[in-house]
Structure formats: structure tokens, C-alpha cells
Design a protein around this nucleic acid. Structure first.
Lengths: 188, 188
DNA sequence: ACCTGAACACCGTTCAAGT
DNA sequence: ACCTGAACACCGTTCAAGT
């Protein structure tokens, strides 16, 4: 399948190294053939990114499943997110490097997958602090998740010096730990 | 100057719309001429990104300057970061979309500018909680700053639904507020 | 029904040749 | 000294033509 060839190119050379001609060569066909299967390269990339997101979702589900408390669950979600990003750097980076041309919105199914990731944290936050309003929980989940995402991106993209998995995991732990303490011990 | 032409292309069409031929056309020259001034396109982009980082630094310096307390300073840093990112989306996104080819490391001057941004938060965190070790302060600064960066990226890149400046600023406030509370009220 | 091959309009980059 | 123009090796995408 073309998707497998594409995935292995991305693993080796990143999104920058991906091209229709390289994929075609990888499966022993002519570039034109790709366009009989996919509308264009963007469609192929979206399909691949969808699978990456599904894989991430599975990892995160597992992380939640093995947790005793909501707090532990959220810590594990953060750690699993970082781990998965580092595990398949190329594929994971491509999810965020890829941009649809100007007008096109993301397919609904794709947007839904992103939302599902947010909901994982949201659920645990709701368990952790059940008295908060739905809006407050949503905001906190997005803020925290966006934060983990940023740490992961900077670390995987090597925009920080000393950016191995270990240091990224430490940063994630630090962010989640202090944030949850603040979120719980709020006085008002 | 070629850099101005490049900047206006990025503002209008994003990094994806930038090409040596377009820049040359913008200044009324032939593509080849660009290579008499810059080693290649990457060098031009790095120069432009450097200026974007300098502009961001200036904004953040101003934000800190007008603050009463370290806590307020950090809140303002977060808000200013989000505001600047939204203000020049194209240029700011390019700083993080651009990747050097495989081997090449970032120029030292460039890496130094990124580090300076981190130090702004680190200084304020040190003022806020002077008893913490340097390592702990560093880690916390990087975690928090990475977090703000993630929120900004997701919002500017429109990877979240309902991602205007307002909601990004609310997320940033939420992250910083709870994080700082947790960081201060830590019991151990 | 399935695939190719050539074409079109683009890239970044180089470098002889022109003024 | 400064710039061009053409070339090279690449892109994504389309589509007549082949089997």
C-alpha cells in the first residue's frame, strides 16, 4: 500500500522528504497511479495523519486504563503523549507540520480525532474536580493539553538545547504537577 | 531589500507561499541574484526568523517592564507572547515551521535568541520563588514557556475549534495562573 | 480496468556569459 | 562589479494513450 511506503519515507526523512514521486517509486509504480487512489498528496497525508492520531489515542487510552486516580491518569497521559511523540518523531511532527491550502478546512473525522484527545484530559479533570463548571473544565483541559503539546513539539523539534526524551518528560511532569496543584488548591 | 519582500510574501501567503522566484520578482531581480546576497534560501529565512525573534523579545521586554510583581510580569509575558504571535501569524509560524536540512545545527546567534526568551521567564520565576534551586527554576521556566508556546501554536494554527486570540489568551491565563499557584503553594 | 509517459507549471541552485 | 539567462535536477498534478 502507498500509505506504508509513505510512512517509511517520513520515518526516515521526515515530512520534508516526502514526495509523490518517492512514494510511487517505493511501491513500484508511476506517480500518476497515486492519483487514481488519492485525490492528491494532501489527502494521502491526511489519511496517514489520521492513523497517527488513532495510534496516539490508543496509547493514551491504555495510559488512562492503568491508572488509580485521576491525578495519576493525567500524569500518565502527559508521559504517554511525550513518549509516543518521541517514538515516531517523523510521523508525529507531520501531523502538525502539514498545512492544508488556505481555504480547505480539516475533514470532520480528523477534527473529531483531535477533539477526542482533548476529551481524555477533560474527563480526568472532571473526575479530579467535579464541582467545577463544564466551561472551566474545558478551558483547563485545553490549556493543560496545549501546554503538553508545546513541550513535546519544542523537545522533538530540538528547539531547546538538552532536549532528550528524559528532559521533555521532566518538563511535562513539572507542568502537570504544578498545574494540577494550582487547579485544585485554588482559593475563591 | 530582499528580506522585506520575503516578509510581505510570508504575511500574505505564509511560509508555504515563499519561494526564491517570488522574492526575486518582488524586488525586480532574477532568482540568481538572491544567491549573491544569501548563501541559500535557508539563510534568508534564518535571517528573517532572527528578526522576528528580536521583535518578540522587544515586546516581551516591554511587557515585563510595565509590571508590578513577578506574578503579574509572568502573566503579561504570556499575554504578550500570544498577542505577538497572532499579530504576525505568518512570520511567527515560520519560525517554527522552518526546518534546517538534517545535519545543520541552528546558528549560535539564533539559539541564543531563543534562550534569551526562556531567561525572561526564568528571571521572573526566580524573583517569585527565590528559595528554589537554579535547576528547579530552569525546569519550571522551560515547562511553563513550552506550555505557552503550545497553546499559541495550536491557536494560531487553528488546530482547535474556537481558536481566536481571545480564547488563546484565556487558555494562557489559565495555564499560567494555575501553574504559578501550584508552583508557589507546593508542600514538601 | 489499470497503468504509463509525457507534458505543464512550478521549485532551489549554479554558473557561464553579458554589460 | 553586478546581474541575467539558461540549465539541472527536482516538485505536484493531469490526462491522452497504451494494454
Amino acid at each position: 500500500m502507498a500509505l506504508e511506503a509513505a510512512a517509511s519515507i517520513v520515518d526516515e526523512a521526515g515530512y520534508a522528504g516526502l514526495s509523490a514521486r518517492r512514494i510511487a517509486q517505493g511501491i513500484g509504480y508511476t506517480p500518476g497511479t497515486l492519483y487514481l487512489v488519492f485525490r492528491n498528496l494532501d489527502a494521502l497525508v491526511l489519511e496517514l495523519n489520521g492513523r497517527t492520531l488513532d495510534g496516539l489515542d490508543r496509547m493514551l487510552q491504555d495510559a488512562v486504563a492503568g491508572s488509580g486516580s485521576p491525578r495519576e491518569a493525567i500524569q500518565r497521559l502527559g508521559a504517554a503523549y511525550i513518549r509516543t511523540a518521541f517514538d515516531r518523531k517523523g510521523r508525529w511532527l507531520m501531523v502538525f507540520e502539514h498545512r492544508l491550502p488556505e481555504g480547505e478546512p480539516l475533514p470532520d473525522a480528523y477534527q473529531a480525532r483531535i477533539d477526542r484527545l482533548f476529551q481524555l484530559v477533560e474527563q480526568q479533570l472532571a473526575l479530579l474536580a467535579p464541582t467545577r463548571s463544564k466551561d472551566e473544565t474545558r478551558l483547563a483541559a485545553r490549556a493543560l493539553w496545549g501546554g503538553l503539546h508545546g513541550i513535546s513539539l519544542l523537545a522533538v523539534g530540538e528547539k531547546l538545547e538538552a532536549a532528550g526524551v528524559a528532559s521533555a518528560a521532566a518538563m511535562a511532569d513539572c507542568l502537570v504537577g504544578h498545574f494540577l496543584n494550582g487547579y485544585l488548591h485554588r482559593e475563591d
